[in-house]
């Protein structure tokens, strides 16, 4: 306590001498950023929260209905299934890409990278990363064409004599979610690979060499060196991917529109429909608010876990 008082007292004495020490003047630099933050993010967010207690079509009078919208959400089967699908999105966007990405990055870096030229590894890495830079809707349109009943996937299956496997990949409720998840894995996989490979190049190579001399095999090195060394990056990947998973919109819009039935609804797409097609602004706001709170809670939890793991490491 007294420590902080001491340090904050010192600059005050020097303030007159140098612009660096006068902290108040720096608030001027927040004007553009602060105005934008307020006008585009904080105020609209608060306004949306307020609207979630209303019934409104976007024009005319706003009717205040208290918690009605939230009560309705609890018995809305489409909304509930859209939240259940969030779990599927997390599997497809966070769990599978992070685990696979870890293995792929380690193999590229520690196994293939030792035997083959750097270009080979770089080209493979770029290939895995390619889907990440394609606009998500274009990816969605292309996959929609690949997966349609007479699309390329089924044609290829028939051509190689596996015609019995051909399916209406996006048109059947029990397959559509899996197809969507596969597309999302395809989109996402390159991100962890690139981040983890960069993280590995930061790790001292002598660690690996020493382990190798001690007779540790590739799998042993993976568990004892790779995973602990790149923990900071793992947290960032998990955080960004989880937020992305909660916000999935484009692929659903382009591939399935939430169907067939309610099989592939996600909260983001459902709230979009509620806002702009059903014109139920209050109800849509309640959905969006629940989604936003979920995003904030999950992010804070991951940030907290990250902090704790860092603190543990320093000890």
């Amino acid at each position: 306590m007294s420590d902080t008082q001491l340090t904050s007292a010192r600059p005050r004495a020097r303030r007159a001498r140098s612009p660096l020490q006068d902290r108040r003047g720096y608030w001027l630099y927040f004007i553009p950023g602060g105005v934008l933050l307020l006008a585009v993010i904080l105020v609209p967010f608060a306004w949306g929260f307020v609207l979630s207690f209303s019934r409104w079509s976007g024009v005319g009078d706003i009717v205040w209905v208290g918690l009605d919208n939230y009560r309705q959400l609890l018995s809305d089967s489409v909304f509930l299934s859209s939240f259940a699908n969030v779990l599927a999105m997390i599997v497809a966007v966070v769990v599978i890409p992070t685990l696979l990405g870890l293995v792929i990055a380690a193999v590229l870096f520690d196994y293939l990278g030792r035997r083959f030229a750097g270009n080979v590894v770089a080209v493979l890495r770029a290939t895995f990363y390619l889907p990440q830079i394609i606009p998500i809707v274009i990816a969605g349109i292309v996959w929609g064409w690949v997966l349609q009943p007479d699309g390329s996937l089924n044609t290829i299956l028939r051509a190689v004599g596996l015609g019995f496997l051909a399916q209406n990949w996006l048109g059947q409720p029990h397959l559509a979610l899996g197809s969507l998840m596969t597309v999302l894995v395809w989109v996402q996989i390159g991100y962890p690979v690139v981040v983890f490979m960069a993280a590995l190049s930061r790790v001292d190579p002598e660690l690996y060499e020493a382990a190798q001399l001690d007779g540790a095999g590739a799998i042993r090195r993976f568990r004892a060196i790779t995973i602990p060394q790149i923990r900071p990056e793992t947290f960032v990947v998990v955080l960004t991917c989880t937020v992305a998973a909660l916000k999935v919109f484009g692929p659903v819009y382009a591939l399935t529109s939430g169907g067939p039935g309610n099989a592939t609804y996600v909260p983001s797409y459902l709230s979009y429909q509620t806002f702009f097609q059903k014109l139920q602004v209050g109800y849509g706001s309640a959905m969006a608010t629940v989604l936003a709170l979920l995003v904030l809670l999950v992010s804070l939890a991951i940030l907290w876990a990250q902090r704790r793991s860092e603190a543990k490491e320093e000890r």
């Binding site: 585009v40 916000k247 989604l291 995003v295």
Partner: peptide, 13 residues
């Protein structure tokens, strides 16, 4: 957190 907030939560306003 402002960057993480989903656009859905402020899109209508």
């Amino acid at each position: 957190l402002a960057n993480l907030l989903p656009a859905e939560a402020m899109i209508y306003p």
